[in-house]
Amino acid sequence: MEIVKPLVQLLAALLLAPLLPGVINRVKAFFAGRRGQPLLQLYYDLAKLLRKTPVYSRTTTWVFKAGPAIGLAALAAALLVMPFAGRPSALSFDGDFVYLIYLLGLARFCAVLAALDTGSAFEGMGASREMQFAVFSEPGFFLGLAALAAVTGQRSLGGMFGVLTGDSWRVAAPVLALLTASFFIALLAENSRVPADDPNTHLELTMIHEAMILDHSGPDLAYILYGAALKLWLFGSLIASMVLPSHSGAWARDAAMFLLVMLGVAAAVGVTESVMARLRLTKVPYMLITAFAFSALALIFQMGR
């Protein structure tokens, strides 16, 4: 049974990930006074896209087709490392959070190259911005995980969230609060949510992630959308594990609570998107540097304790 649990967790993550964008959209619709898309819209989209025949630009090479697939593989592999409900994941080892970050880097690398393969000005623009923001967001995210490692004295994600309990919040509330804030900003930026990017805008000059995937269609686009949902799940579960560090010992109960918190995180993203305007493009690095400052502060606090 113990061997099966990580697999069940993984399967749950793979199946439920597309639910999160649906929740976000519903929350946004609620704030805007609309009914909104069905909660399962992304599932329908994916099913439809997988059935479609793609169109390929004559400019592109195999890089364009391989990009989404390798990116999805990288994100799925990252999901293997991420703990679920404070329990060790299928793959947990010292320094696995470094591996996680570099897997996200691999996914980004593939997406950017696939975008550049089209020779489109817009996709080049999106790719350029994606890389720019990564330079600012990655160190902050990294420092945050390093601070978490320092707080818990563990060097694997599974270990960190295994050690983290409600008592940790009582002892180190400032540090953990700062880290959660930093991770939330990282979530918004890495998943191209408002205020860093707008997933809904189709105004080409302002968008980032959407601009990179303009040319993708059919199963490739499905892979990209699904990959984005997985990435959202990754960051969401990071935050959920931060704010809900209780382990009752009963696996099913923990998992249910965890999923509930995940929905809460998605709702929080939706609320953030509804009440905030998108930042001017030149201001986005400032937001990411703020996340970096949060992480750095947390680390300084932790070091000086």
Partner: peptide, 14 residues
């Protein structure tokens, strides 16, 4: 997913 389908070729959607 692509089995039996003929992907179309076009110019880059700019």
């Amino acid at each position: 997913a692509l089995k039996g389908k003929q992907p179309a070729a076009a110019g880059t959607w700019d």
